[in-house]
Computed example of a mutant assay.
Amino acid sequence: MMAEATATGSTPARVTTPRRANDRDLVDSLVTVLQERINAGEIPAGSWLRQEALAKELGVSRMPVREALRELQARGSVELIANRGARVRLPSTRDIIEVYELHGLLQGHAGEAAAELITSQQLDRLAAAEELFRQSVEDLRAADDDTTTAQRHWHEANTEFHTVIIEAGGNKHLAEMYDNLHHKVPRNLTWIALGNDVRRLEKDAAEHAGILDAIGRGDPAATRALLTEHVKRASDLLVRTVDEIGQDSPPRRR
């Protein structure tokens, strides 16, 4: 069943309104807020985004909300359906394959450079993230029905781990490309694939530990190979997950 959502999270955020309702800064801030909530799964794929409800929640007029939704459509995060409104887009399997193919190339290239260029401070950050991966496994193992803590720790670890690798690689243009790719596939889809199976999460944590070891040893070739394979496995898992979600969803009205 398709959900219908505003931008609701645990604590709805109001966006500070500039002097003009259609100010570029306001639209940008709305795009950032909505994109982050989509990425985190607070607004799940398939949810309808109602302009009036969003405007009321965020404390703005409908016009900047409309512009923000158009920008999210351009990013591929939202689809605008004639006479029906805006809906958070579930990426297709082709989207995932293509996006993760690029992820693998960028991460592999950055990882190879990071193995030679990483600083001790960045290496410490990677080690802390790797520890948080292992903590998320224990959180999930101890959880009953509420996996919120495990999910939060995994998201924090995954974001930090791969961000540090990109930073350590030292290519700012590659970093910009990598950041743009994050808008294409909501990161909560990966948690949906991992968070219902402790063994999958353990394997994911072990893969990150292996990447950390290769970088710590200063082995560029091994780092590239491990990152590329890690991203490929994530892509395969996401494709299966999206196929399963698609099978459970009602057909789209044309």
Rank of each mutant, 00 (worst) to 15 (best):
E112A: 08
D139W: 12
E67Q: 11
D197L: 04
D146W: 10
L227I: 11
D95M: 13
N196P: 06
I43N: 04
T16P: 07
I38D: 00
A206T: 15
R70D: 10
D144A: 15
K203F: 04
V88Y: 05
S249I: 12
L72R: 05
R19G: 09
T93P: 11
R125F: 06
G218S: 05
I96E: 11
D236G: 02
W154D: 03
A55H: 03
G41D: 09
A234P: 08
I192D: 06
L54A: 04
Q121E: 15
H173K: 05
H230K: 00
R240C: 06
D213N: 08
L49E: 01
D179G: 08
A40N: 00
T17S: 15
N158L: 04
K203H: 08
R134L: 06
Q122C: 09
P64I: 04
V164A: 06
A7E: 01
S77I: 02
P251T: 06
E176M: 02
R217T: 03
A142S: 15
E176T: 01
R187W: 00
E36N: 03
T190Q: 04
A129E: 03
E42D: 13
T228G: 15
N22E: 15
V15H: 07
P186F: 01
D236Q: 03
A68P: 11
N83Q: 15
N83D: 15
N196Q: 10
R187G: 00
E130M: 02
S92Y: 10
L132P: 02
L194V: 05
D213L: 06
Q35R: 08
S77T: 05
R199M: 13
E42G: 08
D95S: 15
R224V: 14
A21R: 13
L194Q: 02
Q247A: 15
E79I: 12
I215Q: 10
A205K: 10
N22H: 13
R94G: 08
P18K: 02
E130T: 07
R19P: 09
K232I: 09
G210Q: 02
H109C: 13
F133W: 02
L227E: 07
E167L: 02
T119W: 00
K203I: 12
L181N: 03
V239Y: 00
A40G: 00
A45I: 12
H182K: 10
D243E: 10
A157L: 03
R125S: 12
Q73E: 14
L126D: 10
T93Q: 14
V60P: 14
S10R: 04
R75P: 00
D197C: 04
E138P: 08
A110Y: 05
P220F: 03
A150F: 14
R134E: 02
R125H: 09
A157D: 01
R125K: 12
M63T: 13
R187T: 00
T32I: 08
G195V: 05
V31K: 03
Q121C: 14
V33Q: 07
